[in-house]
């Protein structure tokens, strides 16, 4: 019986994961985490121009993904809770990305999204910049889409190497969250 709290990589049973397969999974996961981390680091400066907390978020994400890439590349032992944490964190990043490209993120600075910075209007009372519906939805670009793909690969590999029972639970939870999001979108709750 597998101890799900202490088993290290490779997490799945030896019958399912040969040594070569394990190294392949590690390399794939490390590469995916590295690509995502580098992309987040590259775009962090422009997000600091938007707001300090947005730039800080990108730096934190980049640091986490690069640290994971290094750990995987060095063959460090990763326990199940750490892998689960990495899966959850990257799924949260994916969800944030999808939200920013579909419904928009409500906590981002509105004026910036509405049309860039403007000089103050002499005598103006309040903010004269219209915020058009959908103005805070960012367009999909090649770099961010590549990052998304890398994160999906990373999550897929991490899930694949989980012990069978944990993997089943995790995939069920992921599927459930996906259904909830789909229904919320369809019913207008995520409009």
């Amino acid at each position: 019986m597998t101890d799900t709290t202490s088993t290290t990589w490779p997490l799945a049973t030896p019958a399912r994961r040969t040594g070569r397969a394990s190294r392949t999974y590690r390399a794939l996961a490390a590469s995916a985490a590295g690509v995502a981390g580098v992309i987040h680091a590259l775009v962090a400066p422009e997000h600091f121009e938007l707001a300090w907390y947005v730039g800080g978020f990108f730096v934190a994400v980049a640091a986490g993904q690069l640290a994971l890439a290094v750990a995987l590349a060095r063959g460090a032992a990763l326990r199940t809770p750490a892998v689960l944490l990495a899966i959850a964190a990257n799924l949260a990043i994916v969800a944030t990305y999808v939200t920013s490209r579909t419904t928009g993120l409500p906590f981002l600075p509105v004026e910036e999204h509405a049309g860039g910075e403007h000089l103050p209007v002499a005598g103006g009372v309040g903010n004269g910049i219209p915020v058009l519906p959908g103005a805070d939805i960012e367009p999909v670009g090649a770099l961010d889409f590549t990052c998304l793909l890398a994160e999906l690969v990373l999550v897929g590999v991490l899930v694949a190497v989980l012990p069978r029972m944990v993997r089943g639970t995790v995939t069920s939870v992921m599927l459930g969250l996906g259904v909830v999001a789909f229904v919320a979108r369809g019913t207008g709750l995520l409009a």
């Binding site: 509105v110 209007v121 103006g124 009372v125 309040g126 903010n127 004269g128 910049i129 219209p130 915020v131 058009l132 519906p133």
Partner: peptide, 12 residues
């Protein structure tokens, strides 16, 4: 109105 009901800007 002081603020546009949808677009949230001050309509000077």
């Amino acid at each position: 109105p002081a603020v546009h009901p949808v677009l949230q800007y001050t309509p000077w």
